[in-house]
Design a protein around this nucleic acid. Structure first.
Length: 186
DNA sequence: TAAAGGATAATA
DNA sequence: ATTATCCTTTAT
């Protein structure tokens, strides 16, 4: 198996928007049955915390959102619209209720199908709600530094699918790699 | 552009 | 127990 430079817990325990930006270009790895699925993160969204109306955590702590209120560096996976999974990464200190949603990735290894969209990337990565609460410092699902540092520009825009969130829908908390052809929308 | 689909959380 | 809602995708 390849040697990875996993991101430390301290990486996630920072300002959510900052973590979101820093996640771009990183590699998400999911190893299942010896198959090493690997992708490059190209598009993310930040969900700042309980005061962010677009975030699930704005409803307070529920059985579902409890993961978001837990310690950073864990996966928050949920089912949306009854048929698709979305994966988030918990950020900030325990109790804050913030996370970064992975919206699109670029296939690197052992990936079939489309990865441009939260539901599609989870399908391609074989991630479902059984991965909810999974530690991203584990050996089968984690995020690592790329082999070589890359240079790219980051674009910020409003988040997708959160029109119900009032003024929070307008905030530029979606980030993606400029010019990358694997982002979910323009 | 609208339907699908299932879990979740609020209401009762 | 019932209902409204949802960080989307796919097919018409």
């Amino acid at each position: 198996m390849k040697r990875y430079k996993k991101l430390p817990r301290t990486f996630y325990a920072r300002d959510t928007a900052q973590v979101a930006r820093d996640l771009l270009g990183k590699q998400l790895v999911h190893i299942v049955d010896g198959v090493e699925r690997r992708v490059r993160i190209v598009e993310v969204e930040a969900y700042i915390g309980a005061h962010d109306l677009a975030s699930h955590s704005s409803k307070g702590i529920t059985p579902r959102t409890a993961i978001m209120y837990g310690p950073p560096g864990f996966a928050y996976v949920y089912l949306i619209y009854g048929m698709h999974h979305c994966m988030n990464v918990v950020t900030e200190q325990e109790g804050h209720g913030a996370a970064v949603l992975l919206r699109a990735v670029e296939p690197l290894d052992h990936i079939d199908g489309n990865t441009r969209g939260p539901g599609l990337l989870c399908r391609a990565m074989a991630i479902d709600k059984r991965m909810n609460g999974h530690d991203l410092l584990s050996d089968d699902l984690f995020i690592a530094e790329p082999d070589e540092p890359e240079k790219f520009s980051i674009v910020a825009s409003p988040r997708i699918g959160v029109a119900y969130a009032g003024e929070w829908a307008e905030m530029h908390l979606r980030f993606y790699i400029e010019g990358n052809s694997f982002i979910s929308r323009k």
